[in-house]
Design a protein around this nucleic acid. Structure first.
Ligand SMILES: NC(=O)c1ccc[n+]([C@@H]2O[C@H](COP(=O)([O-])OP(=O)(O)OC[C@H]3O[C@@H](n4cnc5c(N)ncnc54)[C@H](O)[C@@H]3O)[C@@H](O)[C@H]2O)c1
Ligand SMILES: NC(=O)c1ccc[n+]([C@@H]2O[C@H](COP(=O)([O-])OP(=O)(O)OC[C@H]3O[C@@H](n4cnc5c(N)ncnc54)[C@H](O)[C@@H]3O)[C@@H](O)[C@H]2O)c1
Lengths: 227, 227
DNA sequence: CTTCGCTTGTGATCATGTGCACGACCGGAG
DNA sequence: CTCCGGTCGTGCACATGATCACAAGCGAAG
């Protein structure tokens, strides 16, 4: 493969974290090498796809043997940018924002919650899971000081676009949106969304259609989104 | 279009809830008709895609005029199976499970939390947001009695597969998994996942690559996933 | 009744993603 | 040194999805 001409397809990027998790499990089990077949089973995809996906990272496998688990884990972490932490800012210290702040899993995976911000003065000053709530007007300084890389929107939908604009203005170029609203960001900013109601409605669709006709509505394994 | 030969593409199904939300906003604003262009802008997609997506539902538009908002909303709700409620069971009454139960948005959109179940005896009997926590062994009866249509997994990853198996055994054919684990379900069962750490890692990838090279890494608007 | 501007519905084309099949290559055995 | 079982890397064909472009059809105006 010609080095550096590889632009990794979006669909592949979305699967890398799944492989990463599988590799982490293998490390825990002290397994040194793994075949594409085994990895495919763990990740819930097919083996050819695993090989093609991994080939975008480089030729890290050994024919007849498989992949060295630790080496592949390292290379993948590097590619995903997980060799350093990404401090996160959560906007909206309500029900959801607090639950996320209380969850230890993010810090553990390299995404420490560095700060919470809210527009409601009565929330400012509260300490949640060791993190102080600041006023949203302080976002630009906080962002610079703490090196915020990712912003999470956990406000009502009506405020989501405004919050996104503020995050972008504060230099945050990666946003994860939990509010059920379509928001737009300038080029050069990444935006992903998590919409629980939408997921339930999709499930509703397939369920309803299974119930109606007893035909072969495709058993629906979630694709990732490039999504 | 030949009626009933329409099998709606997965990518389209994943966008229908977004159109639905847009239509609901238009109803609130008392707007009677809408063009594909306007709807596209609200949903954050392009107009041709809107028209093609809607055409799978049938020919509900009027050339030269647009779509009747209320009529389209009704047809879409029907197609998505939202003309009736889908009682939900949340498995795992921990941090996340409780936050979800406390969130009113689901009931409002037709997905009432009918029951919480947990394996931890000390949680059983608690009332959260008016919903009682039951032991997971009671799942089969609860499912039948309450007419559970969708199960939400909010347990640690290690328990996710077991919980999924129990849900399937209890007759729940649609599952939304929040645990960071790959789980498998039999044909005829729908499975979708929401993995926050995975979303953050994807953002990390694009951010890192923007930082490294200053090239045109595609501004990344989340696709849905059938994700 | 005819014309005209507007918007839908859809065939055609292009882009992306998936899966198969097989040659390339490795390491160990004889 | 040669052979051989095993696994990777990838070219190719197919499936799905996105986008374009335009004829068809509607409603209003004259
Ligand atoms: N709670 C859940 O389980 C859940 C589940 C799915 C989706 N959501 C979505 O997540 C979002 C938050 O939900 P929630 O339950 O935490 O709501 P919430 O009302 O409890 O909290 C919202 C917080 O945002 C703050 N806020 C409002 N406007 C703001 C602004 N302009 N700038 C900064 N902060 C602002 C409010 O002060 C409040 O603290 C909503 O969009 C909701 O639809 C929540
Ligand atoms: N809390 C968050 O914000 C958050 C965010 C992202 C992902 N998650 C994921 O969601 C899941 C739950 O997170 P949490 O913070 O609520 O954890 P938690 O430990 O607070 O709650 C887990 C609950 O599941 C119950 N449980 C364990 N095994 C069970 C079984 N076999 N059957 C039924 N119930 C069982 C436990 O008794 C506990 O009440 C985890 O997989 C976590 O990674 C949580």
């Amino acid at each position: 493969m010609v080095d550096r001409i590889r632009r990794i397809p979006e669909a592949t990027v979305a699967r890398l974290p799944v492989y990463l998790r599988s590799l982490a499990e293998l490390v825990d089990e002290k397994i040194a090498t793994v075949s594409s077949e085994r990895l495919a089973e763990m990740a819930g995809v097919n083996a050819a796809k695993v090989r093609k996906d991994l080939s975008y990272l480089g030729s890290y496998g050994t024919r007849g043997v498989g992949y060295d688990v630790e080496y592949l884990l390292f290379q993948m972490s590097r590619e995903l940018g997980l060799t350093h932490d990404w401090p996160v800012a959560i906007v909206g210290a309500g029900n959801l924002g607090q639950a996320l702040a209380n969850y230890g899993g993010f810090t553990q995976r390299g995404f420490p919650v560095a700060v919470l911000v809210d527009a409601d003065a009565s929330k400012v000053g509260q300490i949640i899971h060791g993190v102080r709530v600041h006023h949203i007007d302080e976002l630009p300084e906080l962002s610079a000081t703490l090196g915020i890389g990712i912003g999470i929107i956990a406000t009502p939908a009506s405020a989501a676009q405004d919050v996104a604009d503020r995050l972008v203005a504060a230099g945050v170029a990666s946003i994860l949106n939990f509010a059920p609203a379509v928001i737009s960001v300038p080029d050069g900013t990444s935006l992903r969304k998590v919409d629980l109601a939408l997921e339930l409605q999709i499930l509703s669709f397939y369920q309803e259609h299974r119930d109606l006709e007893s035909d072969g509505a495709p058993p629906h394994q979630a694709p990732l989104a490039p999504g």
